[in-house]
Simulated scan of single mutants.
Amino acid sequence: MKDYRRREIALAAGLSAVAGYVDAIGFLKLGGFFVSFMSGNSTRLGVGIATGDWAMARTALMLIGLFVVGATLGALVARAAGEGRRSWVLALEAALLATGAGLIGLGFGPAGAGVVVLAMGAENAVFQRNGDVGLGLTYMTGTLVKIGQRIAAALTGGDRWAWVPFACLWLGLACGGALGAFAYLRWGVLALWAAAALIAVLAAATAWRDRAAEP
């Protein structure tokens, strides 16, 4: 995290908030399944297998598979565009979110939810470095571990504030989740359009900044 500038950390926290927002909508729409938190779906897969609830297991496995496909698409776009040109991955995510929202609005709920999962998988390629995830944006278990490790380092003479950027990522996801639940309860799946619009704006702003930085 220390290799990232403040502007990049702010972008990462914002994208984590979008992930939390979308995940809360997906959780409420899908009745307890997640569109970005695959650890939860993996647990539901295991429980479904153990209890013989094959519908649960099948749904969880399908969501996990789609997330992996989305992560693959995001990684391929990042490689093709150049990993420093994040606007391309953001544009992919915005297009997928808008497509998913549109399909759900037209009555194709399962297909739309699947496309939203693809978008969440793709988001993790925004900070891809050398083909690997630089910052995880849609899952926070590892981030919470890093917060604890940085606090331990601070208590033993290390950097006192190294834990703060990781805390910002977690806080973004948590606040985004609260906002997404509120939006879903008020507007239903139409709330997904706000996430698609925000990512589209971020994609355009990032593309403009990339062009401005070119010699």
Rank of each mutant, 00 (worst) to 15 (best):
F166A: 09
A98S: 01
G148H: 14
V77W: 14
W187Q: 09
L90P: 06
A125E: 01
W88H: 13
E83S: 10
A122Y: 03
W161G: 14
G172M: 06
A91K: 05
G157K: 07
I151H: 11
L190K: 07
I104K: 08
G107H: 10
E83P: 09
A91W: 05
V89A: 01
T143V: 15
A111D: 07
A98H: 02
W193D: 00
L155Q: 14
V133T: 13
M120D: 06
R85K: 12
A81M: 08
T99H: 03
T156K: 12
G121A: 10
L192N: 02
A75G: 15
V89M: 03
A174V: 13
R160I: 11
L118R: 08
V164S: 06
A162C: 13
G136Q: 10
G65F: 00
G188C: 03
L73G: 03
G114M: 00
D159Q: 14
F166N: 05
W88I: 00
A80L: 13
G176K: 06
A174W: 13
G114A: 03
R150T: 03
L137N: 05
F166E: 08
C175D: 06
R186H: 08
L118V: 12
R85L: 09
L185Y: 06
T99V: 06
W161P: 04
G74K: 00
T143A: 11
N130A: 14
E93K: 00
L92P: 09
W187S: 09
L96V: 05
Y184K: 01
I147N: 07
I151G: 11
A195T: 06
G84T: 01
F127K: 03
A152F: 06
P110M: 02
A111S: 12
L103V: 04
F67S: 01
A152N: 13
I151M: 15
I147H: 11
L185C: 04
G112H: 05
A153D: 15
A81S: 12
R79K: 14
D159H: 13
A125V: 04
N130I: 01
W161D: 15
L190G: 15
L171K: 09
G105E: 07
L192A: 02
V145N: 14
L97K: 08
W193E: 00
A81D: 03
T156M: 08
W193T: 02
A95P: 13
V68C: 09
V77E: 06
G100W: 02
G114E: 00
G157N: 10
R129S: 08
A78F: 07
R129E: 13
T143P: 15
W161V: 13
G131S: 02
L103R: 04
T99C: 09
T72K: 04
F108T: 00
A153W: 13
G180C: 10
A154F: 14
W170Y: 10
M140C: 10
A181G: 14
L66P: 03
A75C: 05
L144S: 01
Q149G: 05
K146F: 13
A162W: 14
A194M: 08
R186A: 10
G131L: 00
V189Q: 05
V117K: 07
V164E: 04
I104A: 06
